[in-house]
Amino acid sequence: MQIYLPIAELPVNMMLLLGMGMAVGFISGMFGVGGGFLLTPLLIFVGVPPAVAVATQGPQIAASSMTGSLMYWRRKALDIKLGIVLLIGGIIGTFLGVLFFNQMRRIGQLDTFIAISYVILLGTVGTLILIESVMSFVRSGKGSTPRARRAGRHHWYEGLPLKMRFHRSGLYISVIPILVIAIFIGFAGAVLGIGGGFILVPALIYIFRVPANVVVGTSLFQILFTMLVATMLHASTNYSVDIFLALMLIVGAVFGAQFGARVGANLRGDIFRLLLALMILAVAGRFTVDIFATPVEPFSATMTDTFR
């Protein structure tokens, strides 16, 4: 059954969109990530213009993080104060990202830029998680305990000015490094159509040592609001958010996420991270081919102005 997308201006199979939303929702529910880094490439592959694919990620990710945030909110596994600091950085980053996105689109390097960013970002994060999960395999074999938070030992960046206390996370650190990370994630989110959960979760755990039980909830809370802002900015500056596409993806993803969450809950922590790393690296690999392999068709043609 075909549905015509009014903004993307092309017909797409409705079942395909629902199915894609569901598959990505499953993975996002399983790993607590937004899934944008999987869905954007999939949409581009189906023929949705990159600009529309990226801009329409916003509402899809917002909807699934809304569900997740509410769930963690009820369990009180959400640090609102930390979330708000992350959000401030996220909004600044998103604003910069949308400006940059529109500029890249104008000079015709958007596709290349998206591909390179995916390779760098996914490649780095994937490799880091992979190394960490393999190390923890090795460690668990030796029977030693993973590093624990020790009182009185801090990284240099935690002691910067503007210190703030985050009760629920048990932190007393400078907000500057938190803002920097949040700005970066907001920027990447707006430019690449990703929520940034797969960067934020490891960052909160490894860089700021936020307790694992509040990390996912807080990250979802931040992603929810960042994506709402991103949707508004995309809608008001490049008019590329497709409401039908968003609706199909949300409906699929919302259901997929529930099943994913159930499967994810039964996975062992290190296996969970290993799988996540492999999946991220697979997507990075796909984009690496795009940039490094000799293209089958070196030409591309884009219509710039139409007279209707």
Partner: peptide, 28 residues
């Protein structure tokens, strides 16, 4: 839809945001 996306981008964006939040809430 296409016209409102262009001419009333704020309203269009708000409708989409509302839709996303509503569906997310319903799912939860």
């Amino acid at each position: 839809i296409a016209t409102s996306a262009r001419e009333y981008p704020i309203g269009y964006g708000l409708v989409i945001i509302f839709m996303a939040l509503l569906l997310g809430w319903i799912a939860s």
